[in-house]
């Protein structure tokens, strides 16, 4: 993908747009199935398709390092964690009739209203704005690493402390305490 900086890339600009729209439709369809299916494990598997589609969109936006981070962390670990959670809470394998709560029509109305409002505002605001994805690669690992370790070192280190705290918190929460009464 770094070759796109030096010579005309694999796809023409119109081709990039067409591929972006097609992958976007697939992503959106997978996300819709994720939130509407009644089979819980299928929801997690359709989530893989949606997150993978977002990773392809990152690649088309020339943010390749973030695309691979997306594949590694979201598709690799978050979905696996969700599947573990589904299985540890003994989710039913087949269709579960009570996957949706009773207020789904209110939820649908809220989501459609939010989508209409945001679409109106966003399309009106960025009607005549173009991204130049042919000029240079904006997100190669060299560029991202330079920016991350030159300008964003302190947030990076603070984030590692946050991850450590999350790890300790998850262990404390999921520990089976109380072999001899409560030890809290």
């Amino acid at each position: 993908m770094t070759l796109t900086a030096s010579h005309p890339g694999f796809l023409s600009p119109a081709g990039v747009e067409i591929v972006f729209v097609l992958v976007g439709l697939v992503t959106l369809g997978a996300a819709l199935v994720t939130v509407t299916t009644r089979q819980l494990v299928h929801a997690a598997l359709w989530l893989v398709a949606a997150l993978g589609g977002v990773a392809v969109e990152y690649l088309l936006l020339t943010a390749e390092f973030i695309a691979w981070v997306q594949v590694l962390i979201y598709v690799g670990s978050v979905v696996v964690l969700l599947l573990f959670g589904l299985m540890l809470t003994r989710a039913p394998i087949g269709r579960s009739p009570d996957a949706d709560s009773g207020n789904r029509w209110v939820a649908l109305a809220v989501a459609v209203a939010a989508a209409a409002t945001l679409l109106t505002v966003v399309i009106d605001a960025f009607r005549s704005t173009w991204i130049d994805v042919e000029e240079s690669v904006a997100g190669s690992s060299k560029v991202t690493g330079t920016a991350l370790f030159r300008h964003w070192v302190l947030p990076f280190e603070a984030l590692s402390v946050l991850l450590l705290a999350a790890l300790v918190g998850a262990i404390v929460l999921s520990r089976r305490h109380g072999q001899k009464g409560s030890d809290r």
Binding site: P13, V16, E17, F20, V21, G24, T27, L28, A31, L32, T34, V35, A50, V54, E57, L60, L61, N103, R104, V106, A107, L108, V110, A111, V112, A114, A115, L118, L119, V122, I123, F126, R127, T129, W130, I131, V133
Partner: peptide, 22 residues
């Protein structure tokens, strides 16, 4: 690439997630 395409996709994904949360 037109900026409207990723912005629209992000809006629609967000609203799908909003529906799912609710």
């Amino acid at each position: 690439m037109h900026l409207v395409y990723p912005a629209t996709l992000a809006v629609l994904l967000f609203c799908v997630g909003l529906y799912g949360v609710l």
